[in-house]
Computed example of a mutant assay.
Amino acid sequence: MLNNSLTDFHRGWMIEIISGEKGFQSTCRSPVGEQLNNGEHYPHHFIAWRIGMELIDQFYACYALKTFLRDAYEAEHLDFEEWRSLNQSLVRNLT
């Protein structure tokens, strides 16, 4: 690698791979400025790139599940406590 960063795109998000003393790290940015980063360092740039893609995929999966849960709550298939507990578990998984 000639420079200390690489850039790629996945599902419209930019994945930036930065090399440092501890290894490679990925930061993902959406077109509207949302940012995902797990803070981990990896020994190879392709691992950091793959993790970046997985973070983006996880973001979309959680978003879809949150939408499903909201629809289930509004259709009265979940009570408020069930909805809140399930929704909070998704939020914890994204942070």
Rank of each mutant, 00 (worst) to 15 (best):
Gly52His: 02
Val91Phe: 12
Arg84Tyr: 12
His10Ala: 05
Tyr42Lys: 06
Ser19Ile: 06
Arg29Pro: 03
Asn87Ser: 14
Glu16Arg: 08
Leu6Pro: 00
His10Trp: 14
Ile18Ser: 10
Phe59Ala: 10
Leu6His: 04
Asn87Ile: 01
Ala75Thr: 08
His10Cys: 10
Asn3His: 10
Ile17Asp: 01
Asn37Val: 08
Gly33Asn: 13
Glu21Ile: 03
Glu81Gly: 04
Tyr60Gln: 08
Glu34His: 11
Ala72Lys: 04
Phe24Ile: 02
Leu90Phe: 06
Glu82Gln: 15
Ala75Ile: 01
Ile51Cys: 08
Tyr63Pro: 00
Glu40Ile: 05
Phe68Arg: 15
Val91Ser: 13
Ile56Glu: 00
Asn93Gly: 15
Ile17Phe: 03
Ser19Gly: 14
Gln88Ser: 10
Trp83Ser: 04
Met14Tyr: 05
His77Val: 09
Phe24Ser: 00
Arg84Ala: 09
Leu78Pro: 02
Glu54Asp: 11
His45Arg: 15
Asn4Ile: 07
Tyr63Gln: 14
Phe59Glu: 09
Arg50Glu: 12
Tyr60Cys: 01
Glu34Met: 14
Arg11Asp: 03
Leu6Glu: 07
Val32Cys: 11
Ser19Gln: 14
Ile15Pro: 02
Met1Asn: 08
Cys28Thr: 01
Leu86Gly: 02
Phe80Met: 04
Ile15Tyr: 07
Asp71His: 07
Glu76Trp: 05
Ile51Met: 09
Ser89Arg: 14
His77Gly: 11
His44Asp: 10
Arg84Leu: 10
Leu6Cys: 03
Trp49Tyr: 10
Leu36Thr: 04
Asp79Gly: 03
Gly52Gln: 03
Arg70Glu: 15
Ala64Val: 07
Trp13Asp: 04
Tyr63Trp: 07
His41Cys: 08
Leu6Ile: 06
Asn37Asp: 14
Gln88Leu: 06
Glu81Tyr: 13
Leu69Trp: 01
Gln58Pro: 00
Leu2Gln: 09
Gly52Cys: 02
Leu69Gln: 00
Ala48Val: 01
Lys22Pro: 02
Trp83Asn: 12
Phe68Lys: 15
Leu6Val: 02
Thr95Tyr: 07
Gly39Ser: 06
Val32Trp: 13
Gly33Pro: 07
Tyr63Arg: 13
Trp13Thr: 03
Ala61Tyr: 13
Ile47Asn: 00
Thr95Pro: 02
Thr27Lys: 08
Leu65Lys: 09
His10Thr: 05
Ala64Asp: 15
Leu94Thr: 05
Phe59Lys: 14
Asn3Tyr: 13
Gln25Cys: 13
Val32Glu: 13
Asn38Cys: 08
Phe24Asp: 00
Arg11Gln: 10
Ala72Val: 00
Met1Ala: 11
Ser89Ala: 15
Tyr63Gly: 12
His44Gln: 12
Ala48Asp: 02
Phe68Tyr: 12
Ser5Gly: 04
Phe24Leu: 04
Glu21Thr: 05
Val91His: 12
Tyr73Arg: 13
Glu81Asn: 13
Leu78Ser: 06
Thr27Met: 08
Glu82Met: 09
Asn37Ile: 07
Asp79Pro: 01
